[in-house]
Design a protein around this nucleic acid. Sequence first.
DNA 1: GTCTATAGCTTGATAGAC
DNA 2: GTCTATCAAGCTATAGAC
Lengths: 215, 215
Amino acid sequence: MTAKRQPKKKTRDKLLDVAEKMFAEHGFDAVSVRDITDGASVRLASVNYHFETKYKLFLAVVARRATVLNQDRKSALDKISFADLTPEDGVRAIAHAFIDPMYQRSTQGDEGWKSYCRLIAQQAALRHSPNITAEFFNPFALELIAQLKKILPGLEDRQAHYAFQYMIGATIYLFTENERLDSLSRGKYSAHDLDTLCDDLVKFVTGGVMGLISS
Amino acid sequence: MTAKRQPKKKTRDKLLDVAEKMFAEHGFDAVSVRDITDGASVRLASVNYHFETKYKLFLAVVARRATVLNQDRKSALDKISFADLTPEDGVRAIAHAFIDPMYQRSTQGDEGWKSYCRLIAQQAALRHSPNITAEFFNPFALELIAQLKKILPGLEDRQAHYAFQYMIGATIYLFTENERLDSLSRGKYSAHDLDTLCDDLVKFVTGGVMGLISS
DNA sequence: GTCTATAGCTTGATAGAC
DNA sequence: GTCTATCAAGCTATAGAC
């Protein structure tokens, strides 16, 4: 066996790539299996052969990059030496650990990463059904909440959980990159300027968490 | 003419009510016209008779309560006497003007309002297509941004626009009332506790906006 | 693992009687 | 304004040859 075989990766991965992009752009229900197979220039039956059902293809798309993103976040969180930081700077470091991996992958990873970030952002805002984000991302979330409580003893358990919800909301809304900011500012600013948006988002989240304990 | 005629409101309004609920719960694409007409106990053809197309029914649902919500927010914003407030309390008042109307209607209005809030929350997080929230809600948004800049001269125009995005994101995520908080806390806290969630959200948003200027 | 062909069902929308 | 009946198109999924 000389490393991996090349040929057997083609169709399956093309399906994952195209599905990722289309689901992110239009949502699960608005995309048909035909849309995906046509976009990938493969036959209709290949989806059922490789993934059994359309929904399991969707799950495979979500799972594919979830591990990587979680590792990014986990290692960013583990790198923080809280002993050297003020509480506020600790919160800032936590905000970075949550936001930066998504930002880095979205802007500097391959094009699929941008779609993926859009996809999980949209998924997180859904009420149910294919809302599988929890299983993939809860473990890291719990660590983050625990660290928040540790460096901010004045923060109640309930507020630490709430803080994380506000953080999710503010963050994922950015990564949908919808056109609201563009239309509001008549093109002066753009939802695609993730660099400055994420910079200020860290400030916003940090100030927000600190604002929870001051009163 | 003795006031309004009663009988002619029935089918059309039943359709609006059921569509509102179903669209909010499952999204536009996951709900069929048949689902709606069955739920409303009316005939399939009535949707096309009253609204022409499924999509125009959706638009009618969104439009129905948009005016009321906007008036709530506008009058809340106009009531603030900024001269008497510190900058931070001014920001807090603005956050209240944005959040409270949705909160009040969602928790104290008729049941349709809860669905409506869920619906526009989900819509706001979509990338495009039926993302018509902008036309309905941009006018108020621009007023809010203008007031932010007025009471915080240190806040750049760009940051005022960004602040509003963070505010939207954090807020609408709450109003989807998805089960993430429930699963994270193993049922200890719930996404349906909008009262405490919105209380702390105002603190978070206020602190977040102040955090943008301090650095 | 790929491809054709198709089954079986659901979709949005309409025509036309009442 | 309501109702029945139906159309044409789209859908997911599968059977079976290669």
